[in-house]
Design a protein around this nucleic acid. Structure first.
Lengths: 141, 141
DNA sequence: ACATCTGTAACTAAACTTGTTACAGTTATG
DNA sequence: CATAACTGTAACAAGTTTAGTTACAGATGT
């Protein structure tokens, strides 16, 4: 279980909130659908809250709802809110700077990394939470 | 050190092999440039070998060289050869099938995953090992 | 025969994600 | 105002992954 599934979980959670409209949903309910612990959900909601995607209320009859209309939330925003960010990682240790390849490879890979991340972001921004919800409610993909 | 940097390492390694042309390179030499252990390099070369990107020779004066011309090796092939594959992971546990969202979200995310992976592959196939080598040798990015 | 490589198994250490318990702080309600 | 019902968050355990290491079998040139 070491693969990062936060984006998947985030889309799931936000789809539920989108479906519920103005109504506030409890972390326990969401956890039931995602099939995990409520604290895991609250941790995730914390990140989504920081990204201004949801609004939570504490106290009795508290819960969480979307901060914006599902039509205005793109998957790119969700990805950005929860991801560690990079499709692939650069070297852990720095390459040997005395080697002509080692000396320049980092800059090349860093630029490539940015470009790939940008490409992923652009693709994800083609989808909104609304579009995801529509597919889910139609039951066909 | 848990972020997957195999793609970065693979590009580095293959760039070195590309620069050396027909000459066979020892894993020890490559390890010196990447700044890691020779066994790590040999493990990586094993994957690149399975993908028909390199050819290794055992025994004294053995080593590894590219299996093809750098112009014919795209970064997409390299990515495919070493990556675990996915930009984001699906849920670890299955969502609650009794929930209308939980029931359908997996299929939606799975399709999305495939599409993102395809997008990354297409972007990476725009670059060849040759093009990477040219940037490295010019020293500017 | 021997030195020099690759290939690979086995083990360790570090990092990360998830799950879980525990508890402080907030809010609605009788 | 007391209590029940929430969220927010810290702290810790467990499982997984990656990288680094050591060790050694097998291949090959001299």
């Amino acid at each position: 279980m070491a693969a990062n599934s936060q984006f998947s979980m985030a889309v799931h959670v936000l789809a539920m909130l989108a479906k519920s409209g103005e109504e506030r949903i409890k972390s326990e309910s969401v956890a039931g659908s995602v099939n995990t612990n409520a604290v895991v959900i609250r941790r995730l909601l914390g990140q989504l809250n920081q990204a201004n995607l949801v609004i939570s209320q504490t106290g009795s009859s508290g819960g969480t709802r979307l901060a914006r209309c599902p039509k205005e939330i793109t998957l790119a925003e969700i990805y950005k809110a929860v991801s560690c960010g990079e499709v692939f990682a650069l070297h852990g240790k720095s390459p040997n700077q005395d080697c002509p390849v080692g000396k320049n490879i980092e800059a090349v890979l860093c630029n490539l990394q940015k470009e790939i991340d940008k490409t992923v972001g652009e693709k994800l921004s083609q989808y909104t939470l609304q579009s995801v919800l529509e597919v889910i409610e139609q039951g066909r993909v």
